[in-house]
Design a protein around this nucleic acid. Structure first.
Length: 664
DNA sequence: TCAGCTCACACTTTTGAATAGC
DNA sequence: AGCTATTCAAAAGTGTGAGCTG
């Protein structure tokens, strides 16, 4: 059985800049604008729990630098993004549409990788559709437990991933905080950004490879329980085959529905009048004729509403059809994959993340559950949740096309929190001014990331030349090479802007621009950055990480390392504790090897001096996933419930769920 | 009163088992 | 007997709109 330890900080979003998602090696001065939950948690923790995880003695192999990911249906996403993508979330779970389908390249065909999808908040605001635009109406609700969708093919060889389109179409979104199906839990009327993570399983014996994380700004969306923008509805109806019935020529369009309703009413009326159904007027009862009639009678302008320019949806068999040979069907030996406490069945369908009740993590930190009863089935008993997120938000910020917030010029000059509102990624506006109109309702987002100038920068976008993918590459285990010999700055929005455009210029002759951001594993600790990060840079975060197996006897022993960890939050935390990244090696690397910022550059963490922590360290739980080749190990519920400590306040407790479902 | 949510509904596609044909 | 193609029903995925809730 393979083992991979995973750092579940995939979903570090806006709040995570508030949360202390870094365990600091030191206790640098830190002046948070407001006491972060993790701050309080950290203060309440025993010092022993704050010890940074040990650095593995073995060197961490570098991931490939040339891993590229392309959003296959980028044009469709862009269409939706230009209007303001809305995703329906339901209690039972709703699929995403457009689907998140990517193509990978640059992987080592012989190595194994796992792919994960998580969805992180874009900001800490709640929205309402007023007029024709989305407006901020308050602060975000408490962060929900993060769940990560592990692609069911995982782990698969690089050749496998590259040979097909990788689709996360089976990912379901729900607003049911008690969901037991492993769907990704989101808040309604909040903005989110999906991210895809590629984790390298270097070989059968070591999972100490790196990982890359990618996000495509055009894939952000607003969660709704019912569509607010009719334009989105039209796009969905005309793009989604399942909604074909609602198209102008469909049997379920409004005209047909009205006709049916009229017939029904007529039938009821006739029945009440003692008339037989056979006496119904033919003009009322001929359904199919209505359709034909409707089509023929449609004025041209109505028929054009079907958006003929929409790209054809690829056939379901494209890349991820069930008839394709799954990686699991290949006679590859089963490497022990240990990804925290999730059980990944060999049947690719069941991933169960389990959490050992407060068991020791690799570092020996013992986290005992304090006040919850958790079993594998997901039943828990936790103290009631009380939301305490302050409604500090900006009452009427709109990111409609007419009121796009302008990106701040630099971190020091970033607006105060009340201006932190919508900050959507705006690739086109930041890369090609001519395409700005494609995102009329999307404010730009500030990526406080390091612009990677390493050779690994993605630079191709074969599917959508107008799409400027922004790839966040997390694990720069070595300092990213700088073409300008200057350190990689933590970009402010303006930096993002200018550099993007610069890259555009530089790449104008070489191909479609594609901006890659490398996420240094640096804590957002710069005091001057803390607020801007909170306000305008919600996305960057640290990915989970992997390390060598620690429990399988068939593999060389690896120094115990604390891997994934759960932050602990005190009662009243603004956000629930989430997956927190603690990758000692990356942390070490980032702290020690990252180039210092050049003067005048946007703030960057100096490498030599321990970066001032934005948040104090905090305790965490380890998370492990196990791959079990025995199908019987597959469990219907695949959750990890984080043990609440220090009186965690969520009704469910704070938990992490990582699940996988069969998609092929 | 109203915004937001839930649910039933009709329609569609997808999936898989059953059947027929070679 | 074995394989392939076709058919059919069930399951699942859609948006809609009425009704419910806080």
């Amino acid at each position: 059985m393979l083992s991979v330890e995973m750092y579940p900080s995939l979903a570090l979003g806006t709040q995570r800049h508030r949360d202390c998602y870094y365990r600091e090696r030191e206790a640098p001065p830190h002046i948070p604008l407001c006491p972060a939950p993790c701050d309080m948690a950290a203060r309440a923790l025993a010092p022993s729990l704050l010890t940074p995880p040990p650095v593995p003695s073995q060197p961490i192999n570098m991931p490939q630098d040339d891993i590229k990911m392309e959003l296959e249906n980028a044009s469709l996403w862009k269409q939706f993004s230009s209007v303001g993508t809305e995703m329906i979330i339901t209690k039972k779970g709703r699929r995403m549409f457009p689907q998140l389908r990517v193509k990978l390249s640059g992987l080592n065909p012989s190595l194994r990788y796992i792919l994960l999808l998580d969805i992180v908040p874009l900001d800490s605001s709640r929205y309402r559709f007023q007029g024709d635009s989305w407006q901020v109406v308050g602060g975000a609700e408490a962060r929900l437990p993060d769940r990560v969708f592990i692609h069911p093919d995982s782990p698969a060889s690089g050749a496998h991933w590259q040979s097909r389109t990788v689709s996360f179409h089976n990912t379901k979104l729900t607003n049911n905080t008690l969901d037991t199906h492993g769907h990704i839990i989101l808040h309604s009327l909040h903005r989110y950004q999906p991210r895809v993570h590629v984790v390298e399983a270097r070989d059968m014996q070591s999972w100490a490879g790196g990982q890359r994380s990618f996000l495509f700004p055009e894939t952000h969306f607003l969660t709704v329980t019912a569509y607010q923008n009719h334009k989105i509805t039209e796009l969905k109806i005309n793009s989604n085959p399942f909604a074909k019935g609602f198209r102008q020529d469909g049997m379920n369009n409004k005209r047909q529905r009205d006709a049916r309703q009229k017939r029904k009413l007529s039938q009821v009326s006739n029945m009440q009048d003692g008339e037989s159904a056979a006496s119904l007027s033919p003009s009322v009862s001929c359904g199919p004729c209505d359709s034909t009639q409707t089509l023929a009678s449609h004025p041209p302008e109505l028929q054009t509403l079907t958006l003929p320019s929409l790209p054809l949806l690829p056939s379901p068999s494209c890349g991820f059809s069930s008839n394709q040979i799954s990686f699991q069907e290949t006679p590859l030996p089963d490497p022990p994959l240990q990804l925290g406490h999730a059980y990944v069945s060999s049947q690719i369908a069941d991933l169960t993340v389990d959490m050992v009740n407060g068991q020791q993590d690799a570092t020996g930190s013992n986290h005992q559950p304090s006040d919850s009863m958790i079993d594998r089935s997901g039943s828990i008993s936790l103290p009631p949740y009380t939301q305490t997120y302050p409604d500090t938000q900006h009452g009427s910020m709109s990111f409609s096309s007419s009121s796009l917030p302008q990106p701040s010029s630099s971190y020091p000059s970033l607006p105060p929190p009340e201006h932190s509102g919508p900050s959507l990624p705006h690739p086109s506006s930041q890369t090609t001014p001519s395409s700005t109109s494609d995102y009329p309702s999307l404010p730009s987002i500030d990526y406080p990331s390091i612009l990677s100038s390493s050779p690994s920068l993605p630079h191709t976008s074969t599917t959508s030349p107008l799409l400027h993918q922004t790839s966040f590459t997390y694990p720069p285990l070595t300092p990213p090479s700088s073409t300008s010999s200057s350190p990689q700055p933590l970009l402010s929005s303006s930096s993002y802007h200018s550099l993007s455009q610069q890259e555009l210029t530089q790449q104008a002759d070489t191909g479609p621009p594609q901006i890659a951001f490398s996420f240094p594993d640096l804590p957002p600790s710069h005091p001057n950055q803390s607020q801007p990060l909170q306000m305008s840079a919600p996305l960057p975060s640290l990915p989970f990480s992997l390390s060598g197996a620690t429990h399988s006897s068939s593999y060389p022993p690896v120094a115990p390392t604390e891997m994934g960890s759960f932050s602990q939050f005190p009662p009243g935390a603004h956000y629930l504790p989430e997956m927190v990244l603690h990758h000692p090696t990356l942390l070490e690397t980032s702290l020690s090897s990252y180039p210092p910022p050049s003067s005048g550059s946007p703030t960057l963490y100096p490498p030599s001096s321990a970066p001032p922590a934005l948040y104090p360290s905090f305790s965490s739980y380890p998370l492990r996933l196990y791959q079990d080749p025995c199908p019987s190990y597959s469990l219907p519920l695949r959750h990890v419930y984080r043990q609440p400590q220090l009186g965690h306040t969520h009704a469910q407790g704070s938990y992490l769920d990582m699940s996988g479902r069969a998609m092929f």
